[in-house]
Structure formats: structure tokens, C-alpha cells
């Protein structure tokens, strides 16, 4: 069980936005545990993400952050606890996992664009084959989304012809093409050259401003500070700390979070 945090603390942040609704969470993670053999990678994780909420998950490498968000859309199986997305249980065998996944967008560290398809076809593939949209409808949507991420002129390119930052923006457009109710970001800027990080973060910031529900694993603390409503700090497979953004950065409660922040904020 978890309590969505009160959202009145938003004053003074850089971006105008409405706070998330606290009613029923889009993603609810309850007492989640996962092990690879004897290695426990997630221990009793409980949290939730409300509609319109942006949650940043941070913590040292190997702390289970990526595993946690990959459990949300069932890319990683888990042994105990539960996750529900819009009320549908992820671990339940009766749940139509492909349908559930089609409702959640995911952006990967290494982009994972389909290298054999053009940018346009990358974006239209799932809408056409999963949502059964017509070719024309899917293409119109793809082109509108490409314009939105600033890549309207790249529709006919192949992923290999784009820079990392451009590829990641295409990946975001690809996920948005499914009209997801929430987006998961798994270290979206970790594989990028420094000069390309901002173009991706800018797109994500806009997305947050538009009210998208987001769960973001990232080391970009500036982004977290500006955009997140709430921060989860993980270490050793546990959620050690969960706090409204300002509270987390100004007064981390645990020593682990304090030392993590002091290391990561030095540069």
C-alpha cells in the first residue's frame, strides 16, 4: 500500500502544470519481490503512480530501478507481490498482457528502434498491427508526432542514419503513437553523448507538461528536480526513500540517499 503524496508543494518549480489526480492510481505496485535464482533483485517494493504524475526512480547501478519498471509492463516476470495497471493485474495469467502493454509506452536506454525499418515504419508498426489502424491514419499520426519531437524531415531515414538523440526522440514518438496512458523511461539518456541529452530531456519535459503519466529511471537529477512530482530512491532492490521532489533533494532522510546525491550532484 502507498500514499500518493499531497501535491501542494509544487510552488517554485520551473514548469507550470496541474498536479496529478490522487484518485485511483494508473500503476500500483504492491509488495513486489523478484529474484534471479538466489539473487534478490527486488525486495518488497510498494508504490503507485497517479494519473498525470511524473515519478523519477533513481539510485546506484544495480539497485533494481530498471528491473522495477520492466516489471510494470511484464517484460520482467516477478515471483511475489502484485502490479496493476489501470486495475489490470500484470502477473495474472488471465490478463491479456499484449493488450496491457499496448496501453503503456516504453523508452529504452539503447533506443531499440527497428533498424530494418524507416523512421515512419518504426512508428506505424505497432499502431497498424496491434491497434489495427489503417495505414493512412497511422502515417498521419506518425508525421504529427515526428513534428512534435522536431524530426518532421526524418520520416524516410533509417535509424542508423540518425544521431543518438534523434533516435531516442523517434523512440519516444514511437511509444506515443500508441496513445499510451502512461510512459516508462528506462535510463533514456544514459547511452547518449552529453550534447544530445538535453534534446531528449526537452521532449520529456514537454510531455510531462502535457500531463502524461511518467515513470522515469534516470540519473539526470536536474530533470528530476524540474519535472518530477515525486522521487523514488532505490538501493539493493528496495525502495529506500519515496518523497516529493523538493523534500527529497532538500532533506533526504536516509544516509544512502544523502551520499548518493552528494556524489551525483558534484558534477
Amino acid at each position: 500500500m502507498t500514499a500518493p503524496f499531497p501535491q501542494s508543494r509544487l510552488k517554485g518549480t520551473a514548469m507550470p502544470r496541474t498536479g496529478p489526480e490522487t484518485a485511483s492510481p494508473i500503476i500500483a505496485i504492491d509488495d513486489l519481490s523478484k529474484a534471479y535464482g538466489s539473487l534478490q533483485v527486488l525486495k518488497n517494493c510498494t508504490t503507485s503512480v497517479a494519473r498525470g504524475e511524473v515519478v523519477v526512480v533513481c539510485g546506484p547501478s544495480g539497485s533494481g530501478k530498471s528491473t522495477l519498471i520492466k516489471c510494470v509492463n511484464g517484460l520482467e516476470p516477478f515471483q511475489s507481490g502484485s502490479i496493476s495497471v489501470e486495475g489490470l493485474s500484470v502477473g495474472d495469467r488471465k490478463t491479456d498482457l499484449t493488450r496491457l502493454r499496448s496501453r503503456i509506452g516504453m523508452v529504452f536506454q539503447h533506443f531499440e528502434l527497428y533498424p530494418h525499418l524507416t523512421v515512419r515504419d518504426n512508428i506505424t508498426l505497432a499502431p497498424r498491427h496491434v491497434l489495427r489502424r489503417s495505414r493512412d491514419e497511422a502515417i498521419d499520426k506518425a508525421e504529427a508526432l515526428l513534428a512534435r519531437v522536431g524530426l518532421a524531415d526524418k520520416a524516410d531515414r533509417f535509424p542508423g542514419q540518425l544521431s543518438g538523440g534523434q533516435q531516442q526522440r523517434v523512440a519516444i514518438a514511437r511509444a506515443l503513437a500508441m496513445d499510451p496512458v502512461a510512459m516508462l523511461f528506462d535510463e533514456p539518456t544514459s547511452a547518449l553523448d552529453p550534447e544530445m541529452i538535453n534534446e531528449v530531456l526537452d521532449v520529456m519535459t514537454e510531455l510531462a507538461a502535457d500531463g502524461m503519466t511518467m515513470m522515469v529511471v534516470t540519473h539526470e537529477m536536474g530533470f528530476a528536480r524540474r519535472v518530477a512530482h515525486r522521487v523514488l530512491f532505490m538501493d539493493g532492490g528496495q525502495i529506500l526513500e519515496e518523497a516529493p521532489t523538493a523534500a527529497f533533494f532538500e532533506a533526504p532522510r536516509t544516509d544512502r540517499a544523502r551520499s548518493f546525491l552528494s556524489k551525483i550532484l558534484q558534477h
Binding site: 520492466k70 509492463n73 517484460l75 499484449t98 493488450r99 502493454r101 499496448s102 496501453r103 503503456i104 509506452g105 516504453m106 529504452f108 539503447h110 531499440e112 528502434l113 527497428y114 508498426l125 505497432a126 498491427h129 496491434v130 491497434l131 514511437r174 511509444a175 500508441m178
Partner: peptide, 18 residues
């Protein structure tokens, strides 16, 4: 083919066969 490709396709809602 990188495992991430299968993950990305499945994350978008494609079935394993698709």
C-alpha cells in the same frame, strides 16, 4: 538480433509471434 528488439516489440503490444 539483440534481445532488446524483442523487448521493444513486445513492449509496444506485439505478440511474440508478431
Amino acid at each position: 538480433v539483440s534481445r532488446g528488439q524483442m523487448a521493444a516489440a513486445q513492449a509496444a503490444g506485439l505478440s511474440r509471434l508478431q
